[in-house]
Computed example of a mutant assay.
Amino acid sequence: MGNSTPTYRTALVGCGGRGMALLRTADQINRIQFVAASDLNGINFDQLTAAGIPVYRDFEQMLEKESVDLVIVATPIATHYRVAKQVLSFPVTGLYLEKSMATRLWEADDLISRAEEAEIFFVVGHQLRYTPSWASVKNMIQENAIGKIGYIRAHRGAALLTHHTHQTDLMRYYLDDVPVSWVLGQLHRDGSHLSEGLESEMQALGFVQFENGVSGIIESGQYNPSAGNHLMLIGEKGEIRVGSGARFRNVDTGGKWQPLPQHDQPHIFESFLEWIEGGEEHRCSARKGRDTLEVLLSIYESCHQRRRIELPLQERGNALEEMINEGILP
């Protein structure tokens, strides 16, 4: 890739619905060329073959045979660590790994260490940082639309590690990824509950104290009636609701609710290439994804230890798994 506008030979691992969506998104960038795809179960192979993309059942065999610069991994969350670890053993330039990056903190740290040692650019798929309807709130905050933020609340009717990771990550993005001081959490589960094949909580509640003084509430799981999928931010001059029922109000609107303005956002994969080529760190770099995972795992750990958890988190595993194995939760 010695010319000024290199083409990045790209491979997809995991060709289900999410993987194909990522392929279509990445394919919007002219400098990204898909040269191979792999899926253990052969999902969507007919479609990929019709597009002229070679397919493999074994992703390691694919990476051994094909010359690849970028790898996009969209396999089930329980496989993320194992698959990403193997990808990072190949001479690639960049790895895009779907969220959450792992299910245990030691796994996330190990992947980051391997990527740094191999000088591989590593991104985790918290793509809402680039989605205009969500990311534009960051622009509003920078424009001082609601003044100094004091409180932020995130709700999503899904499990923490599989889906609420997006909303928790947005909390951190809106607050410039400021560190968290401590987390207090509780879980509910009355039997086996699978989310994307992962044993998960049915409901979760977390209080997050950020170092800058902002207080955050994380609500996860099914409620009746549904509270929707949204974040609420309250500042000294107004408030913002983004997601379901999106709107804002402040002193300039006279306290009346108004639709959220939209701001153009860069393309998530174009920004990936720019980072590789010496630009600013990607909004979804792995270290940011790791810190979001730490907050979620701290909710589990708080429930396990029945106390608030100071960060950085000292426990490196997954306390939900431990509570299930110990019979504390069914």
Rank of each mutant, 00 (worst) to 15 (best):
E98M: 06
Q86Y: 08
A84C: 03
E116V: 15
T79E: 13
D69K: 01
R82I: 11
D109V: 11
E116H: 12
F59M: 09
W106M: 14
R114D: 12
V71T: 05
L105S: 00
S100K: 07
L88T: 00
L63H: 06
D110Q: 03
M62H: 03
A115D: 03
G94T: 12
A84W: 00
P76D: 07
K85C: 10
S67M: 07
S113F: 15
A102M: 06
T79F: 07
M101P: 15
D58A: 12
V68D: 10
A108S: 14
L105G: 00
V83M: 15
E64P: 08
A78S: 12
D110V: 00
S100P: 10
I72D: 12
L70H: 03
E117L: 15
A78H: 10
V71M: 06
T93E: 11
V71H: 06
K85N: 11
R57D: 08
M101R: 15
V87Q: 04
E60Y: 10
A84D: 03
P91I: 05
Y81I: 10
Q86K: 14
V73S: 05
S67A: 10
W106F: 15
S67P: 03
V92H: 01
D58H: 02
T93R: 13
R104S: 09
S100F: 08
L111N: 01
T75W: 02
F59I: 10
E64V: 12
L88G: 01
L111E: 02
R104L: 06
V87N: 05
